[in-house]
Amino acid sequence: MKLQHNLGGLEGLDPINTEVKVFVEPWEKRIFGIHTAMMALSNHLDEAIPDYQIDQVPTTFKSFWSWGHLRMGAEGMHPFEYFRLRYYEKWLGGISGFFVEEGYITQEELDTRTAEFLADSAKAAAPLPIGGDTAIDTQVDKYLREGDSPLRPYPNPPKFKVGDQVRVKNVSPADHSRLPGNLRGRVAKVVLVYEGAFTYFFPTADGLGTPMPVYSLAFKPEDLWHESLIDPKSVYYNDIFEVYLEAA
């Protein structure tokens, strides 16, 4: 993973953003809504749990979009840009780039519209049009209420059990990963084996994609951070996919 997603144990990252508002600017609500609608209309929902009849929804959005795609877009940014931009600016950049890549809009059209909004702040703050297809509204509402479960049946027993000592594999960083960089090579104790197996949104170069067990692991903080930064009585927990683990 790039630097911005491998910060465990690093010092001197001030200033820390202590913003407590969920949405600071009105447009941030819009980009959150766009992302939510994209997930609710994603073409992979025909195989999702619960069942969605996505092929019967009259949407022109025909692509695969999930939280994983949003995260992958952020991980693909230049680290300097990542730290410079606000939270929802990263979302805006990732979603805009996705629409260009998928052919919904050209880069020239995006640049032109961006320049128009920057030149006229009133246009940027204009209310969205009211209306639309009720079938699309119903699908988005259903998705908001029921979601898209990663839980899947798993025919084989988990490799590890509660009490086992496991080591986090030192896998090479990929374009997208769910393994925190500071845990690679560290030993931990299995404290919980989650029931069932969990899939991921799409295959990753480091092994995710097919359903697999997930474990809650307990790490000793002194194995992860300098002693001056920890409480000696504390324990650090992290949930890890099985593909990232091996017997210690």
Results as ranks from 00 to 15, higher is better:
Ala174Gln: 14
Gly163Ser: 02
Ala122Ile: 04
Glu246Gly: 03
Asn6Ser: 15
Met212Val: 02
Asp51Glu: 12
Asp51Asn: 10
Glu109Trp: 02
Tyr52Thr: 01
Tyr104Arg: 06
Gln107Asp: 13
Thr36Tyr: 10
Asn182Asp: 13
Thr112His: 13
Arg167Ile: 06
Phe64His: 12
Trp27Gln: 00
Gly33Ala: 05
Gly68Thr: 03
Lys142Ala: 11
Ala248Phe: 05
Val24Gly: 08
Ala174Phe: 06
Thr134Phe: 10
Tyr104Glu: 07
Gly196Pro: 05
Ser96Asp: 10
Tyr143His: 09
Ser149Lys: 11
Val20Met: 13
Ala174Pro: 10
Gln53Met: 08
Leu183Arg: 12
Leu118Pro: 05
Arg30Tyr: 02
Ala174Lys: 14
Asn238Arg: 09
Pro129Ala: 12
Ser96Ile: 09
Arg113Lys: 09
Glu109Cys: 02
Val235Met: 06
Pro127His: 13
Val166Asp: 00
Ala119Tyr: 00
Trp67Lys: 08
Thr134Leu: 10
Ile54Gln: 09
Phe99Gln: 05
Lys21His: 07
Glu89Phe: 01
His5Glu: 11
Asn17Thr: 06
Pro232Glu: 03
Thr60Met: 07
Thr59Phe: 10
Ala205Glu: 15
Gly132Ser: 08
Ile34Cys: 08
Met39Ile: 05
Asp148Arg: 11
Gly131Ala: 05
Met39Arg: 15
Phe117Tyr: 06
Leu118Glu: 15
Asn6Met: 07
Thr59Pro: 09
Asn156Asp: 06
Glu19Asp: 04
Lys233Ser: 15
His44Thr: 10
Gln139Trp: 03
Ile31Tyr: 06
Tyr154Cys: 14
Ala48Phe: 09
Glu116Leu: 15
Leu118Asp: 15
Tyr52Lys: 10
Arg152Phe: 06
Val187Phe: 04
Leu217Cys: 02
Lys169Tyr: 01
Tyr88Leu: 02
Val243Glu: 02
Ser172Ala: 10
His226Arg: 14
Tyr244Ile: 07
Tyr194Ala: 04
Arg186Met: 08
Ser121Asn: 11
Ile95Asp: 07
Trp65Asn: 01
Phe83Glu: 07
Asp148Val: 00
Val166Asn: 03
Glu47Trp: 04
Pro150Cys: 07
Gln56His: 12
Asp46Pro: 00
Pro26Arg: 07
Asn43Asp: 15
Gln4Ser: 11
Asn182Ser: 09
Gln53Glu: 15
Val20His: 10
Pro158Thr: 09
Asp206Gly: 08
Ile54Tyr: 02
Asp148Tyr: 04
Val140Glu: 02
Leu3Val: 12
Thr138Leu: 12
Ala37Lys: 07
Asn156Phe: 02
Arg178Leu: 13
Asn182Met: 14
Phe83Tyr: 14
Val193Asp: 01
Met39Phe: 05
Asp51Thr: 13
Lys161Phe: 00
Val24Thr: 15
Val190Glu: 12
Val235Gly: 00
Asp175Thr: 09
Asn17Gly: 00
Asn6Gly: 10
Ala122Lys: 10
Phe32Glu: 14
Ser216Gly: 14
Glu109Asp: 08
Pro155Phe: 00
Ser63Asp: 14
Pro79Tyr: 15
Pro150Ser: 05
Tyr215Pro: 01
Ser63Gly: 13
Ser177Tyr: 06
Ser42Asp: 02
Gly196Cys: 03
Ser66Met: 13
Pro150Gly: 00
Met38Lys: 02
Trp27Gly: 00
Pro50Lys: 05
Asp223Met: 07
Arg71Lys: 04
Asp14Lys: 04
Glu47Arg: 14
Gln139Thr: 04
Ser66Phe: 03
Leu179Val: 14
Thr199Lys: 04
